[in-house]
């Protein structure tokens, strides 16, 4: 029983990270039709920024951790906004070229990160409490899992509130459904494009800092390895659906953890789940049927 609880908690923590990446991916794809391969780089840069903060201000205080989260999210947001504004916008409506640009950006930035911080993982320390465990129903669960889960839930709530309660949120929801009709109401939908990139980048940057504590290290490849699972999550959840991304993040991460523990086949189980979803629900669990 305690094993199941531990696996579930670890899976939820991982699911939280997937969600932080997939939520932005899904919103960006839903609104703009852009598959963003550079999203992993937003995450990696956020993680390195958080690590630099921790390294410079004394690693183990809670203030440092909070600051590193803020800086990581801000760096991810800035990088993402820059990407949209300088590179993606020039290729408005040309989706294949937009993907190619993000692929090129991912290649170039990962190489640059390797040049700056080296190819080996750099290890990171957080507040001492992270290393402790909390006993829950007989299982000893590392505390950093709870931090990831709480952060992801807060981000989900903030995003839902933003989408439901603000005018830009309304524009984004309408644009995901029918972008050309939004422009036909006299709204410049491109402002919303920059905005979703910024929000997605902030979530990814935040996810980067949390991922570095979850895994205990930062490496230039951190973002890329999470990105592939985030892609799977967005397809399973339904492209463009925030709720779908949340549900699928948890489902995929739990499946992966349990399949890994009992059969050693976590990654394959995830791909199999993807194949099944595509065969029976090509639009994803909560996606639009088109």
């Amino acid at each position: 029983m305690s094993t199941v609880i531990l696996l579930a908690a670890t899976g939820l923590g991982l699911g939280a990270l997937y969600f932080l990446v997939a939520s932005g991916l899904s919103l960006i794809y839903g609104l703009m039709g852009v598959l963003n391969f550079a999203h992993g780089s937003f995450l990696t840069l956020g993680a390195f920024a958080g690590w630099e903060v921790a390294r410079r201000t004394g690693a183990d205080s809670w203030w440092t951790f909070l600051l590193s989260i803020l800086i990581g999210a801000a760096v991810g947001a800035l990088f993402a906004a820059f990407t949209e504004f300088v590179l993606i916008r020039r290729l408005y409506q040309r989706h294949i070229e937009q993907v190619l640009i993000t692929v090129g950006l991912a290649l170039a930035t990962v190489a640059l990160f390797e040049g700056i911080w080296g190819t080996d993982p750099v290890f990171i320390q957080g507040p001492a409490w992270f290393k402790d465990t909390t006993e829950l129903l007989g299982a000893r669960i590392p505390n950093d899992r709870f931090v990831c889960i709480i952060a992801a839930v807060l981000v989900l709530l903030a995003m839902v509130l933003f989408l439901k309660r603000t005018r830009y949120g309304m524009i984004i929801r309408a644009g995901v459904e029918n972008r050309s009709m939004v422009t036909a109401l006299g709204i410049d939908v491109r402002k919303a494009f920059t905005l979703v990139f910024t929000i997605g980048g902030a979530a990814a940057g935040l996810g980067g800092v949390l991922a570095s504590h979850y895994f205990g290290y930062v490496s230039p490849l951190l973002g890329g390895s999470l990105l592939i699972f985030a892609f799977i999550v967005t397809v399973i959840g339904g492209l463009g659906s925030l709720t779908g991304a949340a549900v699928a993040s948890v489902a995929v991460a739990l499946l992966q953890q349990f399949a890994n523990f009992y059969f050693g086949l976590g990654d394959l189980a995830v791909v199999l789940a993807l194949a099944l979803v595509l065969l029976f629900r090509p639009a994803g669990l909560l996606g639009r049927k088109s």
Binding site: M170, R173, A174, E177, N178, S180, M181, T183, A184, L185, G186, I187, D188, V189
Partner: peptide
């Protein structure tokens, strides 16, 4: 001009098939 600017000049558009935002 771009669509949103044309609309802002004072054009009301009612599309074929209505195109309301169904999830709003």
């Amino acid at each position: 001009e771009e669509t949103h600017r044309i609309i802002r000049r004072g054009v009301g558009y009612v599309p074929e098939d209505r195109e309301v935002f169904s999830k709003l």
